[in-house]
Simulated scan of single mutants.
Amino acid sequence: MSRMFVALVPPPGVLEEVIRAVAPLRDAWPDLTWIEPANWHITLAFLGEVPEGARPDLNARLARAARHHEPLPLALGAAGTFTGRGGVSVLWLGVREPGRLARLAGSVAAGARRAGVGQPDGRPYRAHFTLVRSRKGVELGPLAAALSTFESAFWTADHAQLFVSHLGPPLRYEAVETYPLGKQAVR
């Protein structure tokens, strides 16, 4: 069994923009749990523990879901915070142009459920790009305010990826499959 999720990863140029924007904040707030740039992504669907025997059907269904959605323009935008499960505080960047992304996430989640993996959590999909997780009850509002005007360049998301979580330490995500979006997938 492997702990898995499906996500989009912005291209290196956009990731560099984020690195530059958060560098002074990382320096000023070193005690927070900052997500390492190698692990940055926009989650489409969390799948949880996936049995090896489910992988072939899962891959086929995720590839089919991706083919039904054309590549889409996305950009990262202003930061926000929320309190997640277990009281974990999260600092994130928003995703600009999220409407089509939510439809893609719904298709991916439905494909996973049809393959017998993934669990609906009952909450509507909310696209975000996590920067910090903190269990310490730290008020992250000042960090969100510092990133309130951030806007990355747009890029075209043209594929989704299936990741395995290696819980570590250190935490590491490994891309194990790629699913091209839209017509390009059937060349």
Rank of each mutant, 00 (worst) to 15 (best):
A45P: 04
L47N: 04
K183H: 12
A112G: 03
A175D: 12
S89W: 00
H68I: 00
R103I: 02
R113H: 12
T156S: 15
A145T: 12
K183E: 15
R67P: 00
S134T: 13
R126N: 01
S152N: 08
G116H: 01
T83L: 10
P170T: 09
A66M: 07
A60Y: 00
L143G: 11
L62M: 08
P124N: 07
G48L: 04
P56Q: 06
G94S: 13
L140R: 09
H68R: 14
F154H: 10
S107P: 02
R103D: 13
L101C: 10
E49K: 05
V90Y: 01
P71D: 11
W29S: 08
L62E: 05
R103A: 15
R126F: 01
V176T: 15
Q184L: 12
V50Y: 04
E49M: 12
S107R: 05
G116V: 05
K136V: 01
I19D: 14
R100K: 10
G77M: 13
T178K: 04
E174Y: 01
I35N: 04
G168P: 06
R61T: 04
T83P: 00
F82K: 09
V186F: 00
A112Q: 04
E177C: 04
T130V: 07
P124G: 11
R96C: 06
A63E: 11
V164H: 09
L91M: 12
A102T: 03
V18G: 03
L76T: 07
G13N: 13
L101V: 08
E70L: 10
E16Q: 15
G53E: 15
E52G: 09
P37F: 02
P170Y: 10
T178Y: 00
P169V: 10
V176F: 04
A79N: 05
W92T: 10
Q119Y: 01
V88K: 05
G116E: 03
T178G: 02
A23D: 12
R123F: 04
L25Q: 09
R85A: 14
A157M: 02
P120E: 14
R20E: 15
N39G: 08
H41V: 12
S2T: 08
R55K: 13
A160P: 06
V50T: 14
L171I: 05
P124V: 08
N59D: 15
G141E: 14
P24W: 03
K136N: 10
S107F: 02
N39C: 10
V22M: 09
S2H: 05
G137A: 12
P56S: 07
R103F: 01
G168E: 13
R172F: 00
L167Q: 07
A115W: 03
P142W: 01
H69V: 11
T178W: 00
H68A: 15
A185F: 10
